[in-house]
Design a protein around this nucleic acid. Sequence first.
DNA 1: GCAAAAGTGTTTGGGATACACCCATGC
DNA 2: GCATGGGTGTATCCCAAACACTTTTGC
Lengths: 225, 225
Amino acid sequence: MQYTGEYKPPILTVDAVIFQLIGGELNVLLIERPDEPFKGSWALPGGYSSEGETTLNSLERIVQQKAGVDVENDLRYIEQLYTFDTVARDPRGHAVSVTYMGCGQEIVPEGGRAHTAFFPVGNLPSLAYDHANIIAYAHERLQSKLTYTNSIYAFLPAKFTLTELQDAYEAILMRELDKRNFRKKFLSLGLITETAEMRKGGAHRPAKLYKFNSPTLESLSRSFD
Amino acid sequence: MQYTGEYKPPILTVDAVIFQLIGGELNVLLIERPDEPFKGSWALPGGYSSEGETTLNSLERIVQQKAGVDVENDLRYIEQLYTFDTVARDPRGHAVSVTYMGCGQEIVPEGGRAHTAFFPVGNLPSLAYDHANIIAYAHERLQSKLTYTNSIYAFLPAKFTLTELQDAYEAILMRELDKRNFRKKFLSLGLITETAEMRKGGAHRPAKLYKFNSPTLESLSRSFD
DNA sequence: GCAAAAGTGTTTGGGATACACCCATGC
DNA sequence: GCATGGGTGTATCCCAAACACTTTTGC
C-alpha cells in the first residue's frame, strides 16, 4: 500500500437518483446536459468529487448547483446506493461514480443552471451514460426498502390519508394492494397515529388524516409485503 | 461537469472482507501491516485502485498479491458492500475505499507477502483504519443476506449434512435454531437435494449428504428467518 | 338522489413456533 | 449396553389472502 508517484486514481464522481411522487407516479429528477458528451441527453444530476470532500458533501454541492435542489432540506431520506466503476462508462475516461438515492415530497428545483425536470420512472427519455441502469437499480432498492422499513414517510406530507399512503405504495411497488388488508396491516404496525383533522376532498366522505410517529428510518417488526 | 486542470480526485482504494467458517466460527481474513501507518496492526487486505481498472479487478490483483487468495477460484461468492469515504479515515490523506464482501470454504492463503491469518469475528485483534466498522457492516449484511437468499452455499463444501448446514447458519447469525423446524423449513424451500452418500463421523448414526441444486445466488420464495 | 371516495369484518389456509423421543453406529 | 449425534411429527397460533357492502359528503 505504498503511494508511489506513479499512482493515478480514476476520476471520482457522484450521481443522485432523486425520487418523488407526482400525480400518483414515481418520478426521478433529471437534467438536460448542456455539453458533450451526451449533449442534449438527459442525465442524473452529478459531478466531480474532490479530495477533502465526502461524496455526500460533493453531492449536496452539485445537486444544489446544477439542479437547484437542497439535499438537506428538500429530501427526507438519502442513502448511498452503489458504486459504478466500469472503465468504459464515461467516454472521456475512467470515472468511478458513487451513487445515492434520495426521496422527498413536493420538491421544486429552483435556480439550477441547466434544464431540470422530473420524469415518470415508467416513461424516461433517452439517458446519458449508464444512468438508465442506475435508475433501475435505485428503483429496485427502493421497492425492497419499502417492504422492510418505514421509508414511505419520505414521500408523504406530514399529514396524509390512508388512501394517499396506499397510493404511494402502489406507485412505487407498481402493483395494486387490497384496501382492507393494507389498512389492517399498516395500522397494526403501530407506525402512524390518527390526528383530529380530516381532509375534505370534494363530493365524498372526508378522510381522517394520520401522521408518522417517527419520521426517521426504522425497520419493521414484520416485513411489509 | 467540466474537467478543469485543477480537479484532483481523492485516492481510490479497495478493501476485502473475506469470510469463511473455521471450527464452527465465522472468521475474517486479515493481514498484519508491515509499514506505517498502523505498522503491526491487523487490517483487511486492500490497496490502491488505478485508472483503467475496475475496483473488482483491483481487488483480485491486490488480494492475490498481498494475501495469497485467488478471488475467482477460492471464493464462491463476492459482492460490493459499501464505499467508505470520510476524509480522516486514512491519516496519510483522503482515501475513498470501495469495499467488497467475499465468502468461501477451506480457503488457504498461499504466497501472500505479509502475515496473513483468519480471525474469529467475535474475537478480532486491534484493527487499522475504520476496518472494525467495515467488518461489522459486512457481518450485518451477511446476516441479512442469509435470510432472503441461498448465500449459505458459499460457506459449505459441495456435499454436506443438514447439521453442518444448520451449524453454518448458527455461526453466522450467532444464535441457535430449532433442529426440527430448521430441517422442515429448509427442505421445503427446495434448494437442496439428497445424495446417495452418507457421512460417517464416529460412534453415532451416519448422516445423509445433501447438495445445492444451484450453486449461484438466488432469492428465496419465503424469506428464511 | 346520485356520484364518489372513505371506511369496515370474517373466513380460510399456510407457515412459524414450540416441544421430546427413537434410531443407527462405534466402541 | 452405552454414548453420540442423526433423524422425525403434532398441536397451536398468528398472519396473509380473498372478498363486498355501508357511510358520508357535495352537488
